[in-house]
């Protein structure tokens, strides 16, 4: 039977200044162990500072569902796939979810094992390990991950404070908004506004003003509610807008809209066709 093997990196949104941080990690691992045992999933979890690297192996459908849940988990701020392979045997057959302590040698060993087995160079996006380690040629200089953990705690705490600083009284103002992933079919099938909003957010990062100019909703409140819904369900990525795009006057956005209207004659024709077809059906 073939085994699906995936690895991902993620940034946890757990408060790192919280003294219960370690116990929170342990809680996640313990819960994973029980779930994974029932699901026949094995793997490892590495953490360093605010980032985790997890390798999972198991039945194709189970792994697909697990990945989906992880992606939707509000504790994961960021998530990128480092490995996606199909194999014929498990690398860690007896570990339902082994937590590798933040110790460089142990972490190098397991990542080296994965790299060797799949003959790949892993892109550990955001995970604090040196390049040499990822390529499977350990550096003689050992950087204690606990030290980098302490630095990360300080850095992340500062970033978090900055991120939480209100830039405006209107929610989502001062941010670039982007779609993390598409909502599930039933949500899309039943909600045309969300469908259109997600299409706009999937094309490129947008400011609130850009979204307003698209006239997806006739009331600003409805747009904010829809964004709140996407945010609550963890489908939205918010990053601070440093480009000042959000400061553009609305008049300029209206001009952009008019230009788009001219370019989109085809789109207008499709819209008219759909409208008349709906009336006829």
């Amino acid at each position: 039977m073939s085994i699906k093997c995936v690895a991902y990196t993620s940034k946890l949104s757990i408060d790192l200044t919280d003294k219960n941080y370690s116990s929170e990690i342990i809680k996640i691992v313990n819960k994973s162990r029980i779930n994974n045992k029932n699901l026949g999933v094995t793997g490892i979890l590495l953490f360093s500072g605010s980032h985790v690297f997890q390798y999972l192996e198991g039945d194709n459908d189970t792994i697909a569902t697990l990945l989906y849940r992880i992606k939707k988990d509000s504790r994961h701020q960021f998530h990128s796939l480092a490995l996606h392979k199909t194999g014929d045997k498990r690398l860690f057959p007896t570990w339902n979810m082994r937590l590798i302590s933040p110790n460089t040698a142990s972490q190098r060993k397991v990542i080296g094992k994965i790299c060797d087995h799949y003959k790949v160079v892993l892109d550990l996006d955001g995970f604090q390990l040196e390049d040499e380690l990822v390529k499977g040629t350990p550096s003689p200089v050992v950087v204690p991950l606990l030290q980098s953990h302490a630095q990360n705690v300080q850095k992340d705490s500062q970033q978090k404070k900055q991120a939480l600083k209100p830039t405006s009284k209107v929610p989502f103002e001062g941010y670039l908004l982007e779609l993390k992933s598409w909502p599930r079919p039933r949500t899309l099938n039943e909600n045309k506004g969300i469908l259109q909003l997600c299409s706009a957010l999937s094309a490129k990062p947008c400011t609130l003003n850009h979204l307003r100019a698209q006239s997806i909703y006739s009331h600003d409140e409805d747009l904010i509610n829809a964004l709140n819904l996407l945010d609550r369900l963890n489908f939205l990525i918010r990053t601070q807008d440093k480009s000042q795009l959000g400061q553009e006057p609305l008049q300029l956005n209206t001009k952009i809209k008019k230009n788009n209207d001219v370019k989109n004659r085809f789109s207008q024709a499709i819209k008219r066709f759909i409208h008349s077809a709906k009336l006829g059906s």
Binding site: D61, A64, R186, L195
Partner: peptide, 23 residues
Amino acid sequence: IDAIASKIESALQTIGITAPILT
């Protein structure tokens, strides 16, 4: 529907894209 959507989404992830899935 979630089960089949998960499979499709997982496949799309391998090539780094996300796309709407409708019934």
